[in-house]
Design a protein around this nucleic acid. Structure first.
Lengths: 250, 250
DNA sequence: AAAGTGAATTTTGTCGACATTCCGTTGATG
DNA sequence: CATCAACGGAATGTCGACAAAATTCACTTT
């Protein structure tokens, strides 16, 4: 899903049943499996129509991406979210994507310019009926493709891989912002301005716009979710036993 | 092994039999399992004294780290090395570690300064009997710890995670450089100068030294292994069928 | 009534076995 | 003699089952 689909991974077309990885990633990114949730393989197996072995494999792969945490002898768990993580994520994205964008602007050719323009067009055309509240899956996909395309000409597979990881991570928070509403934000305008500066080869301005673009989402998330202000994970129902005897029975 | 041992992973003390991950990573990093080598689980299982299930899990985790590639229906393979990858790795390391070092210099406290000094001391003390040719395992470990400590105060788990990944990747190439010999290189002096600039809070100088430090290793590898100049993977014995008869099946 | 202790249930980690797929070789054919 | 097709061996991916660990529930004790 999203950015990772374009990551420099193997080109395995005939995917094994561990295409579960993509479905699992999607469910985590979309909040179907909320942060901190315990991943009980036996319960998830029927949900995805596979055995536990492929599920375990999928969890392991996602663990190295940072979407799943492994606790030995205690199974898997959706990686928790926190204010500190969001802030780190934001700043790291700003730094790394800025690096990539600068390189892309310096090295990108005409073909790349065309791809960026096309990606922007698709992104802008995709918003028609999107109200607020529910998130538009198709828009998310185009959004991920746009950012991947924008940085695509940087020439560094490693930077692109890191971008994909960070972008996926951010998607979990971004979803919270969308649930809160895109109130008073001109996302289309931000992307358009970013493309304009990029095609003008104005690296300084483009990087500034990108930095601001990334910051805006974070601000929106923090504004709409006071829980993140205290650094508390929003879902506590499945977290490691805190004080025990407080919550006897549900 | 090496940098990943300090990565922000879970603190799993009682490790499951997938401590095989560390052994596998070590063998890949040290060239016991050369780049491009096919990882036949049945043959590796007795080698590590475990079944295939833990091995498969280990391979999956290492895959997301970039040390192993997955080809669906075709198993695992040690990630190949190439000139292009080395160059990308080098430049990305320079960029990311520079970012982290700048932040560490800006935010590091006295405790951190002490840790850096201690890490340098251990690193310098570790080289006594190391001739050339064979690589010193203990030195490698101290080397990894030194660089991790140096950047440790940057305050960004994500940057540190990326550093760990890139550092491990580089270790495979670094080994080639050591096999070629550390001829005419004062590694100790480089690290000492780096620490001096860091403790002086001279970010510009420190980053310049770090960039140069990273570049030197790459130059040495390229000088000693002409094979990498053409971008050819050094081991071809286990690579995917090259020309064959053009694949009959469509 | 609350805390500590013990057993039962759930869950995890691992192993062996089977179906499917891929690779290398042999044999047939133009 | 080279090319193609089919066969056999090997390896991979997946499933169910067993042992060990952890968590939960219930009971006893103070």
């Amino acid at each position: 899903m999203t950015a990772s689909s374009r990551a420099p991974g193997p080109v395995s077309e005939p995917t094994l049943a561990s295409a579960v990885v993509d479905r699992l990633r999607g469910d985590i990114l979309h909040g179907v499996l909320p942060p901190g949730e315990k991943l009980r393989l036996e319960h998830l197996a029927p949900r995805y129509g596979v055995g536990r072995t492929p599920l375990r494999e999928a969890c392991c792969r996602l663990a190295s991406e940072g979407l799943v945490t492994i606790e030995d002898q205690r199974g898997f768990r959706v990686a928790p979210i926190s204010r500190a993580d969001l802030l780190d994520l934001t700043r790291t994205r700003q730094q790394i994507e800025t690096l990539a964008l600068r390189a892309a602007i310096a090295q990108g050719d005409i073909t790349w310019e065309g791809e960026v323009t096309a990606a922007l067009h698709r992104l802008l055309r995709r918003v028609p009926a999107s109200g607020s509240g529910t998130l538009d899956e198709a828009w998310e996909l185009e959004h991920a493709r746009f950012h991947a395309t924008l940085l695509g000409a940087c020439g560094s597979p490693w930077l692109l891989k890191f971008h994909a990881m960070l972008f996926d991570q951010t998607e979990r928070y971004r979803r919270l912002a969308q649930a809160y509403g895109k109130a008073g934000r001109d996302v289309g305008g931000e992307h358009t301005a970013l493309v304009r500066a990029t095609l003008d080869r104005d690296a300084e301005r483009a990087c500034a716009l990108l930095t601001e673009h990334i910051a805006k989402t974070t601000e929106l998330v923090l504004a709409g979710h006071p829980g993140l202000r205290a650094g508390l994970p929003p879902t506590e129902k499945e977290l490691p036993t805190k004080t025990r005897s407080i919550r006897k029975k549900g």
